[in-house]
């Protein structure tokens, strides 16, 4: 028990260091001490290049990665508990694919439309709406009078995701070559947005959703022993389903519409954290948020440094996440989930 607390504390420190590193490391390496001196002496922005880069480029980017990674990991955690399945994440439920389909549609059919709805472009609005549509279908299946098993819902999500992917291929076939470049870039995800506007959007979108999900922690614990036992202990299982689907879809929709589909965070991070903190959601969920944010910061550092120019972050999360997940599978056997 003591050692678990120590490991958890150590992990938090590692996460904080990663966040700091993501501020310091970039295309230009920055001397943090110089930046701190500039801030302390109140140097004006014109001649304080280090401080300028940090405040206007690095910090918003790091915050964006933190919010996006934290939100995706938390949503993964909640879906895994709700559907009692280790593969349940926003990505496997087809949310990302539908968001991408929406973005492609907006690019192909809405070309040239300059729209700005509360800071969202047409592509982002379409991505959000399609993500919401995907969850709505799964949710409608979940709440039919005759209960469907979590596994069936997950399969429905996977099927919808495959459907969306076919839709994307069809749109690619229709699209003009110059549109394809933009579309493909969006599909790879990225936190290389400039300024604080996307950060603010994510902050407004993610914070309330995260708070609501964190408040369900003890109910997700109960679901771990089965829906019937949880119901017997006074958990309103139906209400928990509604809350989780609704809140997770809003949160994921906002995130994906801004940074594009970023896979593996929602899958890998909760499983990795669970090996450290155990499965009490009161600890697991906030730790997954921190670790998810730190993981995306790490991937963003690699994205900035791996090649000259930037590598899209969605590629990095998969390249880093997939081997790590395989390692977890081999190491930990996932025996716990066998009888789910």
């Amino acid at each position: 028990m003591k050692s678990r607390v120590m490991i958890t504390a150590a992990s938090v420190v590692v996460c904080l260091l990663l966040i700091l590193a993501s501020i310091a490391i970039g295309t230009e390496s920055i001397d943090l001490r110089a930046a701190f001196d500039q801030w302390r002496t109140g140097a004006t922005k014109g001649n304080a290049s280090e401080l300028n880069i940090i405040v206007n480029l690095r910090l918003p980017r790091t915050l964006l990665a933190l919010l996006a990674g934290g939100g995706l990991a938390l949503a993964g955690c909640a879906f895994q508990a709700l559907l009692r399945n280790p593969l349940a994440t926003p990505y496997t439920l087809g949310i990302d694919s539908f968001a991408a389909l929406g973005a492609y549609m907006a690019t192909v059919f809405g070309a040239g439309t300059a729209m700005n709805l509360a800071g969202f472009s047409l592509v982002q609005v379409a991505a959000f709406l399609f993500a919401a549509f995907d969850v709505l279908i799964i949710y409608a299946m979940a709440t039919r009078a005759r209960r469907m098993s979590p596994l069936v819902l997950l399969l429905a999500g996977v099927t919808l995701g495959l459907l969306a992917n076919s839709g994307i291929l069809f749109l690619r076939y229709l699209a003009k070559p110059e549109q394809l470049i933009n579309m493909d870039r969006w599909l790879m995800g990225g936190v290389d947005l400039i300024g604080y506007e996307p950060v603010l959007t994510l902050l407004i979108g993610v914070t309330p959703c995260a708070i609501i999900l964190l408040m369900q922690a003890s109910r997700y614990d109960q679901l771990g022993f089965g829906e019937e036992l949880a119901a017997g202990r006074g958990v309103d299982v139906r209400r928990l389903q509604v809350t989780t689907f609704l809140v997770c879809s809003i949160m994921t929709g906002v995130i994906v519409s801004k940074v594009g589909p970023i896979g593996f965070v929602g899958l890998v991070v909760p499983h990795a954290v669970r090996t450290i903190t155990g499965s009490r959601h009161r600890v697991l969920m906030p730790m997954s948020m921190v670790a998810g944010g730190a993981f995306l910061c790490l991937c963003d550092i690699i994205a900035r440094k791996a090649m000259t120019g930037e590598t899209p972050i969605g590629i990095i999360t998969s390249i880093v996440g997939a081997p790590f997940f395989l390692y977890l599978l081999v190491r930990r056997r996932f025996a716990d989930w066998d009888n789910a």
Binding site: G224, G226, G232, G234, G278, S279, R280, N339
Partner: peptide
Amino acid sequence: SQLQRARTVGFLPQTVNPIFAMRVLDA
């Protein structure tokens, strides 16, 4: 309410299959 009921009635269903490793005391 479901919680009020659960304070009076304890119910153990036939199939209970936990998905997480958990210490007996915590369970």
